[in-house]
Simulated scan of single mutants.
Amino acid sequence: MAAGSDRNKRRLLVYISGHGYGHVAQIAPVLNQLAQDQPHLALVVCSAVGESFLRSRIHVPFIYEPRRADFGMLMQSALEVDVAASVAAYLDFHADWDAKVEDEAAWISAQHADAVLSNVAYLPLAAASALGLPALSMCSLNWADILRHYAADPALDHVQQQMRHAYASARGFLRIEPSMEMPWLDCHAVGPVADMAQENRAVILQAIGLQHGSEHKLVLVGMGGISTQVSPANFPVLPGVHWLLPQAWMQGAERADFHAQEPLQMHFSTLLASSDLVLTKPGYGTFVEAACHGVPVLYVPRDGWPEQDCLISWLRVNGLCLHVDAGRLASGDFAGSLLEMLNAPKPQRVAPRGNREAAGWIARRLGLAS
């Protein structure tokens, strides 16, 4: 139980998946708005994501509980799903499903929670249902549909039944734009959600030894929080183009146009808002933040990840994007695509109207509105 001023507040238990950083990027702006609208709420964030990263995105007070309630899909890299390992993990996870629900319900009860919000673990929803607590999901996907896409195996039928029953036990599913179709769920649609950042371009240029001026182009590179090692050695060398890379990718590479992100000590959103282009994989957080900041996107498709089609279609309409396949990324044969994006007119910014829409619906649906 929280101490001091939190004792009389309603406690909302928020589960955030640790499958990449996109789930944090989705829910953090909504929590920031929710806490502003409902100051009587005390937030308890349960996640396998590290506390420092969570606090860099969630700007309102919260209690941190390191807890892993889902694993999504097991990955070989940010671009490749390990299907066999994922199937085995789900079969193991559901082997003692009733006991897992009972244990999670006991833990939730011990937190004195008034409601549960999940992005997008289903175990807490089943546990909340067992306790009679109001619960909601919010996300651009759900793990039942993702698993079925990769493995429509009859051996998983009981797993799918338990997953879908858990999702359906909640008071609703907040489907944020853009997202997969989920017709079997009780969905409520809201607009895009994104963390808006102030650009800090002049400071970045100074930090990497460049004079502030329009002749410099900054290309931000990131694959969304799942460990991926890409060698940038063959990335094209172009006049005025400078790469902001994850430090681990540089591996001692010494090029005047390569700069590590970490020494800049800026949030990824600030780097994105300050850049001329972002090179990434299809993922909700980076795609939507790029559209909301008017930054073009060069993307490397994933290996059939089912969510990517709706993200790409949405960004083509609401922003500016172009794809580069993994082979061209490795060979460095994408200078033409890079220059096409850098020389194109900047796209119009998209308003993250879902931040406020989602916060209002959550408060009303969970009975937490002041």
Results as ranks from 00 to 15, higher is better:
Arg148Glu: 06
Met250Gly: 10
Arg67Leu: 14
Val237Gln: 14
Gln229Asp: 14
Ala3Met: 13
Trp314Leu: 03
Pro296Asp: 02
Leu210Val: 08
Arg365His: 11
Glu51Met: 03
Gly252Asn: 01
Arg171Lys: 14
Val30Tyr: 01
His149Ile: 07
Leu91Asp: 08
Ala166Glu: 08
Gly18Arg: 06
Ser140Gln: 08
Asn32Phe: 06
Ala248Phe: 09
Gly285Cys: 07
Val193Ile: 09
Val278Lys: 03
Ala105Asn: 03
Glu254Leu: 10
Phe71Asp: 04
Leu91Pro: 00
Val120Gly: 12
Ile108Lys: 03
Leu244Lys: 04
Arg67Trp: 14
Glu80Leu: 09
Asp98Ile: 06
Asn142Cys: 15
Ile16Asn: 09
Thr270Lys: 01
Ala99Phe: 06
Ala290Val: 05
Ala35Asp: 07
Pro236Val: 07
Ala207Val: 05
Tyr21Leu: 12
Ala84Gln: 02
Ile58Tyr: 01
Ala253Glu: 13
Gly222Glu: 00
Asp70His: 06
Gly18Met: 02
Gly225Arg: 04
Asp276Val: 05
Tyr122His: 15
Asn32Ala: 12
Val24Ile: 15
Arg171Gly: 15
His40Gln: 14
Gly72Val: 08
His19Ile: 13
Gln198Leu: 15
Arg328Met: 13
Val230Thr: 05
Phe93Lys: 05
Pro345Asn: 05
Glu102Val: 10
Leu244Met: 12
Gln211Asp: 12
Met266Gln: 11
Ala130Met: 15
Arg201Thr: 14
Arg255Pro: 07
Arg171Tyr: 08
Asn234Gly: 09
Ser231Arg: 06
Ser129Tyr: 13
Asn200Asp: 15
Glu340His: 13
Ala135Ile: 11
Arg353Ala: 14
Tyr299Lys: 02
Glu199Met: 11
Glu177Phe: 11
Gln198Met: 14
Ala260Lys: 06
Cys187Gly: 05
Leu79His: 04
Gln198Ala: 15
Met266Pro: 02
Ser179Ala: 15
Asn318Val: 00
Lys217Leu: 05
Arg302Leu: 01
Ser137Met: 10
Leu12Asn: 04
Ala326Met: 08
Leu12Met: 11
Ser231His: 08
Leu329Val: 14
Phe71Ile: 04
Lys9Leu: 15
Gly360Asn: 14
Asp333Ile: 02
Leu54Ser: 03
Leu74Pro: 00
Gln38Cys: 09
Pro61Thr: 09
Arg316Lys: 12
Thr228His: 07
Ala330Cys: 03
Leu133Cys: 12
Gln229Met: 12
His216Met: 09
Met73Asp: 01
Arg349Tyr: 00
Glu340Pro: 01
Arg356Ser: 13
Val159Arg: 01
Gly224His: 01
Ala113Leu: 07
Gly213Gln: 00
Asn355Gln: 04
Trp184Arg: 12
Met182Arg: 10
Ala326Gly: 11
